[in-house]
Amino acid sequence: MTVNEAAAETRRTLLDIVLLACGEADADRHALAAADPVALGLRNATEITREAQASGALHRTSLELASAGSDLRTFVLVRLTDDGRAEPTWMVNGWSTIRAHGARADLRGAVLRGADLSGARLVGADLTDADLRRADLTKADLSGAVLRGADLSGSVLFSATLRGADLTESDLCRADMRHVDLRGAELMRTALRGADMWGAYTWDVDFGRAFTDGAQLDRADTLNAKVS
C-alpha cells in the first residue's frame, strides 16, 4: 500500500463529517440530497428529499455531488428507513460544516466556488480537482492538504497555511497570497501568474517548475528560496 493509499483510507467522506456535525451516526443509513438555495424558497426539505430519491440523486461523497452538478453550499441530511423511504433529518450548511470538520476529509472534486472557508481547518484534506475559484480561505489551515489540479484562481489565501501542501498542477492565478505560508509545498506545474505574494513565507520553496509570470515573487520572503 502506498503512502497516498494509506492516507486515503483514513480520510472521512463528506457524509461522515456531516454526520459528525449533526450528532448522527450510521453512515449506511444516511445520504445527502443537494438543495439549491434558490429552490429552498419554493420547496421544503421533504419535497427536496422526495425529488432526490425519485431521481436517484442521493449521495455520500463530494465527488458524487460534483458529478451530479451540485455544489456544497446547502444540502439535506437524509435518513433511509427500513422500507426504503428517504426522510429528511437536517438542513445542512455545507460551508460551515467544512470549516469546522474538514480536517483529513475526502473532498475530491468538491464544488466550493465562492465559498466562505475563512479560518477553516483543512489539515490533510484531499481537495484534488476541487473548484475553489474566488473562495475565501483567509487564515485557513491547509497544512499537508492535497490540492492537485485544484482551481484556486482569484481565491483569497491571506495568512493561510499551505505548509507541506501538494499544489501540483493547481491554479492560483490572481490569488491573494499575502503572508501565506508555503514552506515545504510542492509546486510542480503550479500556475501562480498574477498572484500577490507580498510577505509570503517561501523559504526553501522551489519555484523552478511553477508558472510564475507576474507573481510578484520579489514581494515574498524568499530567504534561501530557489527562484528561477
Rank of each mutant, 00 (worst) to 15 (best):
L127D: 08
C22L: 07
A8R: 11
G41L: 04
R178Q: 06
L137V: 06
S62F: 06
R174W: 07
F211I: 12
A175R: 00
A52F: 07
R134V: 14
A110S: 08
G84Y: 07
D213R: 14
I48Q: 03
I48C: 08
A25V: 13
D71I: 01
T81P: 00
V18P: 10
V146N: 14
G194T: 11
A150N: 00
T161Y: 06
R219N: 14
D176K: 07
T222L: 14
A165R: 05
A220P: 05
A35V: 07
A125Q: 10
R73A: 12
A210Y: 04
A215D: 01
T190V: 11
D204T: 11
G184E: 01
S228A: 12
H59A: 01
D82I: 12
S170F: 06
A45Y: 09
T161D: 12
L80R: 04
D218V: 06
A125R: 08
L187M: 02
D106Y: 11
G208W: 02
H179R: 12
G154V: 07
A150Y: 06
A86C: 05
R189E: 12
A135F: 05
G41V: 01
D126E: 15
H101P: 08
D106G: 09
R113G: 15
E51G: 07
S118L: 02
T128F: 13
A68G: 07
S155T: 09
E24N: 08
D213C: 11
V78A: 08
A68S: 01
E87R: 14
L14T: 11
L40E: 07
G144Y: 10
R29P: 00
T128L: 13
R50H: 13
L122Q: 08
L19S: 05
D206W: 09
L187S: 01
D181W: 00
V205Q: 05
M197H: 04
D141T: 06
F158S: 11
A185K: 00
D206G: 08
L127R: 01
